[in-house]
Amino acid sequence: MKSVLVALTGGALLLAALTVAAQPQLPGAGFGRGGGRGGSGPSDTDTREYDKRDFSGLWSRSPDQYQLTPCPECRDPATWPGYGFFGETPPLTEEGQRRFDENRPSRGIELGTPEAARRAEIHAGYRRAVLPAFGNDPEMRCEPLGLARLITFAGIGAAMEIVQTSDRMVQLFEWTWDFRDIWMDGRGIPNVEDYLPRFNGYSVGRWEGDTLVVTSTGFDDRQWLDQYGFPISDQAVLEERWERPSPNRLRVQLRLIDPAIYTAPWDSSPKVWALIPKEKMAIGGWSGILEDRCVPSDESLFNTFRDRAAGVGEEGAAGGE
């Protein structure tokens, strides 16, 4: 071990140190309901006047990627093995457990390792990662991610944009080039029996003070709640509470109510984004989010390499440009 540690590059040490520095060490400051395991205090020191009900713009949870001041509270705490819904997972129903067991994620702590055993304080869903070649994550087939997964991934690397009008808010997600709309024209939640299920559901929003409260229903139950294979049913209701606590921060707390799968409502950990000026999110002078699609034929090519790494599919690692 000593030789390995000695061999660590300066860059690795620096990055590791930055990681430790960037990870919130304390619970959140009581944001939202349930609290979850929120980030540290706000890092935005901008004192300019702003409209707390204007969420429009480009948002990222990694502002340092755009040469902006880092946002420690934008990161999920190091308690968690990556990014996801998080918070305290309620006990699963019998049906929920059956579906949970069917899902074999490839993110999180590797199944069967000492670390998986050591981290028994977190849900088993975060401690069961298998090689992608042996998993069944729908993302690995370019299937739609679904709303909660889009939100909880948005901004980690790929960005999110919000376009807002007087009666509608549209969220555009860079990874998978997907979107959802939130209607704020006073319409009610639809009777989902009358509509086809959607991966991103049907969403209506209303203002409670400066908090936008969004309710979504009508989900396609083939999606995973997040990358750890937590299931969701077509009867699920997702509540979101969005706030803009400072000029350059956007924050949401999610609550999943899905009695077919979970025995109690599940509150996520808070998610925080940083506002990215459009001139900072530009390539060759063209600003905005990228068309970061998951293209099935590209994914299939990638999977020939992925499978080869698992000792299967020895043929086929060719093609492309």
Binding site: A22, S62, D64, Q65, S106, A129, M140, G157, A309
Partner: peptide
């Protein structure tokens, strides 16, 4: 993790 999205690999790093 520090590298964030840049290295939010498609689950394959475990391979």
């Amino acid at each position: 993790i520090a590298a964030g999205g840049a290295f939010a690999h498609h689950g394959s790093a475990i391979s």
